[in-house]
């Protein structure tokens, strides 16, 4: 029972991270029909700029974290303005634009390498890393904060998408940008918002998960791929399905690592998701999501 609890907890922690990346990917995809290969890099940027502001500049956490979010929002804005928008304006295909975001990922990694170097860095923690034992299961406030942030963001996004007029316009742009534009919605603004919002979510994730994973310039791409896997598992249809996919991957990873060989957990999970993608390209939740709408 106790091992089971530990397993769930560690699965939930990693799963929340994948879920946050996956849900950002699904949100950008929903608005722009493009998979943003730079999404994982925002987590990297979040983690490493926390090091910059809090460790290097010795700013207190409450000042540091907002600074991190501002940096990420700015970079997200630049990705949209300097890569996505010019490519769309010259009529590029979605796959070409996806390669463009991969170029952005490369630019972000390359720049981070110049600033922070190739070594793994210790990321300062906002919450305590001291173990707390509840009902026989030991956790840390940092770990719990990740899960809590995830839950909070889910609620926030749900509210935004389904309970505000602004959310309605986001969904309208996702369904048909041309029609939405005819109805007076500024599709480009909505898309820019989705990039910036996803960048902020990425930065926040990075700041929170950094202390557990350590900050490293090349951590982004792996997170992007895990986020994709979450999207694949849940289906491209909605951010919530993607988030559920992320949690599932976290739990699966923890289980494989615990009962099997943790060394081979990663390739095994890649293999499983690949098979699942081939068998059910719409995702496990894909049809359910489609029927619900």
């Amino acid at each position: 029972m106790q091992t089971f609890g530990i397993l769930i907890l560690s699965g939930l922690t990693n799963g929340s991270v994948y879920a946050l990346v996956g849900l950002s990917l699904a949100m950008t995809y929903g608005a722009s029909r493009v998979i943003n290969f730079a999404q994982g890099e925002f987590v990297m940027l979040g983690a490493l700029s926390t090091v910059l502001f809090v460790t290097t500049f010795s700013l207190p956490m409450v000042v540091g974290i907002p600074m991190v979010l501002i940096v990420c929002a700015t970079v997200g804005f630049l990705v949209e303005r300097l890569a996505y928008r010019p490519l769309v304006r010259r009529g590029s295909q979605p796959l070409t634009i996806m390669i463009g975001t991969l170029a952005c990922a490369s630019i972000m990694t390359g720049t981070a390498l110049l600033i922070w170097g190739p070594n793994q860095l210790f990321v300062p923690n906002a919450f305590s890393l001291e173990g707390v034992t509840i009902a026989g299961i030991t956790s840390t406030p940092q770990q719990l904060a990740i899960i809590a942030t995830f839950a909070f963001l889910m609620a926030l996004i749900w509210f935004m998408l389904y309970r505000t007029t602004f959310g309605l316009t986001i969904r309208a742009v996702g369904i048909d940008p041309a029609v939405a534009t005819l109805m007076g919605i500024r599709a480009e603004t909505i898309i820019a918002f989705s990039f910036v919002f996803s960048a902020i979510v990425g930065g926040l994730t990075g700041g929170l998960v950094g202390p557990l994973l350590g900050g490293h310039v090349s951590m982004g791409i792996m997170l992007t791929i895990k986020g994709f896997m979450a999207v694949i598992l849940g289906g491209m249809g909605s951010p919530f399905a993607a988030a559920a996919g992320g949690i599932a991957i976290g739990l699966l990873e923890a289980t494989v690592a615990f009962y099997g060989n943790s060394f081979y957990a990663e390739p095994i999970i890649f293999g499983l998701i690949l098979m699942m993608l081939i068998i059910r390209p719409t995702g496990l939740l894909g049809e359910w999501e489609a029927n619900r709408k």
Binding site: L82, A83, P86, L87, R90, S92, T96, I99, G100, L102, A103, C104, A105, S106, I107, M108, T109, G110, T111, L113, L114
Partner: peptide, 13 residues
């Protein structure tokens, strides 16, 4: 890494 990324993007645009 940086130069490749910039090159890729600049050419695409």
């Amino acid at each position: 890494t940086l130069i490749y990324g910039v090159g890729l993007l600049v050419f695409m645009i």
